[in-house]
Simulated assay, not measured.
Amino acid sequence: ADREDVDGIVITHGTDTMEETAYFLDLTVHTIKPVVLTGSMRPATAISADGPLNLLEAVQAASWPDLGKYGVVIVMNSTVHSARFVEKTDTTHADTFKGRQMGCLGYMQDGRPRLYQQPLRKHTWSSDLAAPKELPVVAIVYAYVGLTADDVRRLAQGKAGLVITGLGHGKMPEPVWQALQPLMEQGLVVVRAARALGGMVTPVPAYDGTVTADSLTPQKAKILLQLALAHTTDREKIQAIFDAY
Rank of each mutant, 00 (worst) to 15 (best):
R100L: 13
F97Q: 07
R114Y: 12
L105R: 07
R121G: 00
Q101A: 12
D90Q: 04
L120W: 03
Y107Q: 10
G111K: 05
T91Y: 06
H93F: 14
Q109N: 10
L105E: 09
Q109H: 13
Q117N: 10
F97C: 06
A94R: 02
P119N: 05
C104I: 11
D110V: 01
C104S: 13
L105T: 07
C104F: 06
Y116C: 00
M102R: 10
V86H: 03
T92L: 15
C104Y: 08
L115G: 04
G99Q: 05
Q118P: 01
G99V: 11
V86I: 12
Y116Q: 04
A94G: 06
Q118V: 11
Q101D: 15
G111D: 01
Q118H: 14
K98A: 15
T91Q: 05
R100V: 07
L105W: 10
C104N: 09
K98H: 15
G103W: 01
T89N: 09
A94F: 05
V86A: 09
T96C: 12
Y116M: 05
T96M: 11
G111Y: 01
L115T: 03
D95R: 07
M108N: 02
D90W: 02
R121D: 08
T92V: 15
Y107K: 13
G106C: 10
A94D: 09
D95W: 04
R100D: 12
T92P: 00
G103M: 01
D95E: 09
T89A: 11
R114F: 15
T91E: 03
D95A: 13
F97M: 13
M108Q: 01
L120Q: 08
R100P: 00
Y107G: 00
